[in-house]
Amino acid sequence: MPRLPIVTRRRPLRGTLDAFLWALGMAFALTWAVPLVQMISTSLKPPGEVLTHALAWVPVHPTIQPYIDVFKKPVLEWLLNSVVVTVTSTVMSLITGAMAGYALARLHFPGRRLVFWAVLIVLMIPTEMTIVPLFIGALRTGLVNRGLADTWVAMIIPQVASAFSVYLFRNFFLSLPVELEDSAAIDGASRFRIFVALAVPLARPAMVAASILLFTNYWNTFLWPLLISFQDNMKTLPVGMLIFSPGGIGGGPTDINAYDTVMAAMTVLSIPTLVAFLVLQRQFIEGATGAGIKG
């Protein structure tokens, strides 16, 4: 996985043109942050301020009433569904991805290139292409519209095998020196022991990168849960929160004065991934780089 250099010394600005470009870039970055800053600040405004102080970044009279209103809806149920599905999917993708990635990087067997190419091609295939057959499959196996546990299973199964996870781990293991494992093999350790005792502990950076990217990805999964959550209590958070959506779909308010609650709901939905990103920024960006096809 390519590493971003940790720069301790910034490049000083050279001349007026450079200073001007710097200011322009910072203004650009600030503009990029506006939607999310506005979202959070509006979620703390009392209804009267939403319109009158629409562009103000700091509420005049901050209030948490919008958040109280959000939790009057079955948000906690959706949160539970989201947590169960996201955490299970992430853990399973990590395990299957690390094992398969290790085999592709280290082991010698007929079919290795075939499996690797299948992974590469599937990386390029959007999930939208398989929703119809998967939906029929979920209907025919009776996993849909029965109970909550069945819906969880139906939501998790398509996320167990992540080509992205395999790809990331394969690249990481290829970047590790092989000598240590070779000497363990000469000493008679089995492949599985080598994997568990040597390779996995060394793969901690890849584990961190893969788990945060998979977590973000699964937390935000939208289309598949939308299709198979037939009842309100089966929804995940991104699907359930649509009731606050004022747009083409969903039953949210169209009155901008009520946007304090809408934005509070959106903030609740964003907090887990947003906080994870702000804390683990470097791992996020390195992981995303590793995801780029650079093998």
Binding site: A29, L30, W32, A33, P35, L36, T216, W219, N220, F222, L237, P238, V239, M241, L242, S245, M266, L269, S270, T273, L274, A276, F277, Q281, F284, I285, A288
Partner: peptide
């Protein structure tokens, strides 16, 4: 700031 929107749900 540039990367942040990428971790946000489509909703």
């Amino acid at each position: 700031a540039f990367y942040m929107p990428n971790v946000i749900s489509v909703t």
